[in-house]
C-alpha cells in the first residue's frame, strides 16, 4: 500500500494542546511542510512567542528559542545575525505582535532582517482568557470589552500587514487565511514564498494568517470559520501588500 499522507518530518510527535477548531495546528503543519519541501529542517531555528502558541517549540522538530512576550523579532534578529546561514522564523499572535511587540516587529521589518515572521491574527488574546486585542473588531465583545469594542475609547483594529507594507525594506507582505481548502493552499504557497525568499537571502517576509479562536469567541468549532469569513475578512482583507521580488507572478 502506498503512503500518500503523513506527518511532516519537521513536526514532532507531540499531540497539539490547541482547542478544537483553532487554526494554530493547521498553520503549524503548513510551516512544517514548507520546511520539509525546502529541505531546510537541519538549519531552521524557530522563535516561539508568549500566548497560546508559547509551546510551538514542542511541535516542530527544529531548534527553538522561547522569547519574551512581543520580543520574538528581536530574539530572531540576534539569532540570524550570529547564524546567517540558518532559516529563522518567528511565530506570534496578535497580542504578542500587534500590542506589546509592535516596536520589535516594525523595526525588525524596517531593518530588513532576513527572517520570516508568521502572524496569527484571531482578534483576541487566547491564552489569558479572551481579552480585547489590537485587532479585535469594532463592537466585538471580549472579557475586557464586555460592552463591545468602542472605537472612541479603544481605537480601531490595527492592520499590521498594511502598516508593514509601507516600509521600504520588507520584500514580501501578505495576508491569508485557512477558512477553506482553497485558501489553505494559498496560505501554504505564501509560507513557501516567504521561506524561499529568506533562503535566497532576499530579506524580511511577513505572512499574516487570519485565524480562529472558537473558545474565546464563544463559537462552536464548526461555526468559527463561518464567523471569521463573515466578520473578520471584510475588515482584514486578504491579499498581498508587498512583493518586491514578484514571487507571486512567477
Amino acid at each position: 500500500m502506498k503512503k500518500i499522507f503523513s506527518r511532516p518530518e519537521s513536526m514532532s510527535k507531540k499531540p497539539f494542546h490547541y482547542c478544537p477548531g483553532c487554526d494554530h495546528g493547521v498553520v503549524h503543519r503548513l510551516i512544517a511542510e514548507v520546511i520539509d519541501e525546502l529541505e531546510i529542517k537541519n538549519r531552521t531555528i524557530g522563535v516561539a512567542p508568549v500566548g497560546c502558541s508559547v509551546f510551538a517549540y514542542d511541535y516542530f522538530d527544529v531548534d527553538f528559542n522561547q522569547a519574551p512576550h512581543g520580543r520574538a523579532p528581536a530574539v530572531a534578529t540576534g539569532i540570524k545575525r550570529v547564524r546567517p546561514d540558518s532559516i529563522v522564523f518567528t511565530y506570534q499572535g496578535d497580542g504578542d505582535l500587534a500590542a506589546i511587540g509592535t516596536a520589535e516587529i516594525i523595526h525588525a521589518a524596517n531593518r530588513g532582517e532576513n527572517i520570516t515572521a508568521v502572524f496569527i491574527n484571531n482578534a483576541i488574546y487566547g491564552m489569558t482568557g479572551g481579552q480585547m486585542a489590537p485587532t479585535s473588531l469594532i463592537g466585538m465583545k471580549t472579557q475586557t470589552s464586555p460592552y463591545g469594542r468602542d472605537a472612541a475609547t479603544a481605537g480601531h483594529p490595527i492592520h499590521m500587514s498594511e502598516m508593514i507594507a509601507t516600509l521600504e525594506s520588507p520584500v514580501y507582505v501578505t495576508r491569508v487565511t485557512v477558512n477553506n481548502p482553497a485558501n489553505l493552499m494559498k496560505t501554504k504557497k505564501a509560507l513557501l514564498n516567504a521561506f524561499t525568499l529568506q533562503k535566497e537571502g532576499k530579506g524580511f517576509s511577513f505572512v499574516e494568517v487570519v485565524s480562529t479562536c472558537p473558545t474565546n469567541w464563544g463559537k462552536k468549532p464548526t461555526d468559527a470559520h463561518k464567523w471569521l469569513t463573515e466578520n473578520m475578512l471584510p475588515v482584514f482583507k486578504l491579499g498581498t501588500f508587498k512583493d518586491t521580488q514578484g514571487v507571486e507572478k512567477s
Binding site: 519574551p68 520580543r71 528581536a74 530574539v75 539569532i79 545575525r81 550570529v82
Partner: peptide
C-alpha cells in the same frame, strides 16, 4: 536597536545561538 528592551532580546537571541 529600537529600544533597550529590543537590545537585550537580541542579546538573548545571539547568546542562544552560541
Amino acid at each position: 536597536a529600537e529600544s533597550e528592551v529590543a537590545a537585550i532580546n537580541m542579546v538573548y537571541g545571539a547568546g542562544s545561538a552560541g
